[in-house]
């Protein structure tokens, strides 16, 4: 028990270290900010193009189906230019930790697991597939021991089924 408390303290200290980063916009190069702005401009231009495929305005109305999306598309395009210009003149300050390769791999693997879970749920009951998903995520994120690999999957699945399946009568 003492070891567990110590482990939690160390873990919490590590996390608090991570949490101490100031809450400011991400530091980036001017080039990156310009590319982000260009991306926003591309989104706006795409919206403008897609809006032209919407049903044309009625003859007696200039405020039809495509008017609002076109207005928003134009606004996004202009704002993308503004983002690029502001980013080039005053690049924002860094605020996020750089992502680690392990973290990115873990996230991609979790997303893959969720897709597999979605497919498996079509063929097996919620109470069967959900503990496996929880077990998979726990394992990917470094969970070891019976608490992480047995207790957590059982408790989380039970809580989900209790709240949604029994209390709120959601067909799981």
């Amino acid at each position: 028990m003492t070891a567990m408390v110590e482990e939690r303290t160390v873990q919490a200290t590590e996390v608090n270290d991570l949490e101490q980063a100031p809450d400011q916009p991400a530091q980036s190069t001017r080039l990156r900010e310009i590319l982000i702005g260009a991306g926003v401009v591309a989104v706006g231009a795409t919206v403008l193009l897609l809006a032209q495929q919407l049903p044309a305005e009625a003859a007696n109305s200039e405020f039809g189906s495509r008017w609002w999306p076109s207005l928003i598309g134009g606004a996004i395009t202009l704002l993308g230019l503004a983002v690029a210009i502001v980013g080039a003149l005053r690049p924002p300050v860094r605020d996020c930790e750089e992502p680690g390769a392990t973290g990115i791999w873990q996230l991609l693997a979790i997303l893959g697991l969720i897709v597999v879970y979605g497919i498996a749920w079509r063929f097996a009951h919620f109470l069967v597939v959900t503990p496996l998903l929880v077990l998979g995520i726990m394992t990917l994120l470094g969970g070891r021991g019976w608490r992480s690999l047995v207790l957590v999957p059982v408790v989380v699945t039970g809580a989900l089924y209790g709240v949604f399946g029994l209390l709120l009568r959601v067909p799981l």
Partner: peptide, 19 residues
Amino acid sequence: IFNQIIEARRGGTASPIEQ
């Protein structure tokens, strides 16, 4: 939570707030 996952160091575990 995705952001916490990609920023976390290997083996590092977290509770968002301790104190």
